[in-house]
Design a protein around this nucleic acid. Sequence first.
DNA 1: AATCGGATCGTCT
DNA 2: GACGATCCGATTG
Length: 199
Amino acid sequence: MNEKSKRKPNILQKSFYERSTIEVAKDLLGTILVRTIDGKQISGMIVETEAYIGIDPACHAFKGKTEANKALFGPVGHAYIYFIYGNHYCLNAVAHISQEKAGGVLIRAVEPLSGIDIMETNRGTKILKQLTNGPGKLAQAFGITKQLYGVSLMEPGPLYIMNGPDLAIHVCTASRIGISQAQEKQWRFFICDNPFVSR
DNA sequence: AATCGGATCGTCT
DNA sequence: GACGATCCGATTG
C-alpha cells in the first residue's frame, strides 16, 4: 500500500475519472457511493449509470458552457448536479479524457448498503426497492441537492465514491433513458439482474 | 402489469 | 414561454 492510498483509503482518485467517459461509466458499476450528513453515513453500491460526453447532443454540455452546467467543464472527479422536472435532483460524476472539454456520468441507481433508515425518512417510504432505483430517487434518499454542486468526490467529505468489493460484475448495455437526441447510442450501463436498476 | 397525465420550477430562447 | 438525463398515483386490462 503506497502513501496515497493510506491517506484516502479506497476512494477513487483523479486517474480513475480522467479516462473515456464511457469506460468510467462502466467501471463505476460496483463502486460505493458514500454520503456523510450530520455525522451519519449513507452508502450504496452503484448499479446503473449513463455516459454523457461533451460532443454528444444529449449531453447538457453540448451547447456550450453556462452557469448551470459549468461543473461539467470543470475538473474531473467532482459532482455535477442538476434539477429537473420541477421536482428532482440528479447526480453526475465529471469524467472525461483530458483532451475533451466536458463529460460526465449520470448515477442512475444504487443498491442501499448503510443508512437505510435515513433513506426511508428522506424518501417517505419503507419499500426497499423504491428507495434508490432511479436518479431522482437516489438523490432524494442521499440528501443530494445543489448545495453539493461541484464538490470533490475524491476525498472524505460530504460525498465521495469508494472502490467496491472485488466482485465479478456482469455489465449490461442499453439505450439511455429520457432523452430525445442520440437515442441510438448504447451508453446506459447496469449490473445485469440487479433488482435496484430502474425499470 | 402496463399506461397515462399531473406536479412543478430552473434554465435557456 | 416552453421544455426537461423524473417520479408518483390513478386508472385500466
